[in-house]
Simulated assay, not measured.
Amino acid sequence: MAAHTEPTSRTVHEPGPTGRTAPHSYVVTGGGQGVGRAIALRLAAEGHVVVLDLAGPLGWEHPRVALVSGDAADPDVARRAADAAEAAAPLAGWVNNAAIFRDAPITAPPSDVLGLVTANLALAVTGCHTAVGHLLRHGRPGAIVNVSSHQAQRPVRGALPYATAKGAVEALTRAVAVDHGPDGIRTNAVALGSVTTARYEEYRRDHPGVDRQMAALHPLGRVGTGGEVAEAVAFLLSDAAGFVNGAVLPVDGGRAAQGADPEAT
């Protein structure tokens, strides 16, 4: 197999904040709110962003952000998002952020458990399929970031399908990185700890002791922010991470590194 070499005739522009030359475009699935919204807004500093989300109108606006409404697991919808991004500027990066947070215990019918695992995994598989296919058709290098979770390595109770799917997403990340690194397509993942979002803040209101518990779980003593996740994703998509491929980057304040203290009471 011939080694990949990047095109030598590229238009030179002033580098953006992460060093990537402009203009470029990105797709962020599940970018309508929460962490996905933070990622979309951060990448809008680099170029045009297409948010692929089930939501209707976003409820917020940015001159460089457009919405494609639909199911990110549907290949036709994902292709429509890629085409919309390409129409604005060459597609350079894809972020698989969309996820489903529903539980089914292993005592449930296997079809229920497998349905939820598949529903989550399909979002990343379809996104990788679409991004890789699009970049190959255009003969262009690019980058994919899959959003995973600390639960891929350390599940919490009541999240079996989600944790199982995220473990598969991390394996998918490595497999796509190996298969398509020679094409100049880098694939990495971020494994998130707890991050403050509207959903998290609602949970906080209903569980007054959660701040103390989260501080104990995260060695930095707090949960993360969407902006901190977005910076890590922007780095992995940027030319500054040009030799990073097949990595799973913990963005969790040290949560995955910290084991339970056997002497703690």
Rank of each mutant, 00 (worst) to 15 (best):
A2I: 14
H4T: 12
T8G: 10
P15C: 05
P15M: 07
G19F: 12
R20Y: 05
S25A: 12
S25L: 10
S25H: 07
T29K: 01
T29H: 01
G30W: 00
G31Q: 00
G36H: 02
I39M: 03
L41E: 10
L43D: 00
E46R: 09
E46I: 14
V51D: 00
V51P: 00
L52S: 02
L54V: 15
P63A: 13
L67E: 03
L67Q: 07
S69Q: 10
D71V: 11
D74A: 12
D74Q: 08
P75M: 04
D76A: 15
A78Q: 05
R79S: 14
R80H: 06
A82C: 10
A82E: 08
D83A: 15
A84W: 05
E86Q: 14
E86K: 01
A87N: 11
A89N: 08
P90F: 05
P90L: 07
A92I: 09
A92H: 14
V95G: 05
N97W: 08
F101M: 13
R102T: 15
P105R: 11
A108F: 13
A108E: 14
P109T: 05
P109M: 04
P110H: 12
P110F: 10
V113M: 12
V113S: 08
G115T: 13
V117W: 05
L121T: 14
A124N: 08
V125K: 00
V125I: 15
T126V: 11
C128D: 04
C128V: 10
C128T: 06
T130I: 13
H134G: 08
L136F: 06
R137V: 11
H138N: 13
N146K: 01
Q153G: 09
Q153M: 10
P155H: 11
G158V: 11
G158H: 07
L160R: 06
P161S: 15
P161E: 11
Y162H: 11
Y162F: 14
T164W: 08
A165N: 11
K166H: 08
E170Y: 12
E170R: 05
L172H: 06
R174S: 09
A177W: 07
V178I: 14
V178C: 05
G181S: 04
P182N: 00
D183R: 08
R186Q: 03
A189V: 03
A191T: 04
L192K: 09
T197C: 01
A198D: 10
D206N: 13
D206H: 13
P208L: 02
D211L: 03
D211G: 04
D211F: 01
M214G: 07
H218L: 06
P219S: 02
G224V: 15
E228D: 09
V233I: 06
F235R: 03
G246C: 10
V248I: 10
V248N: 01
V251P: 07
D252L: 06
R255C: 12
G259Y: 03
G259P: 04
G259E: 07
A260M: 08
D261A: 07
D261L: 06
A264I: 04
T265N: 13
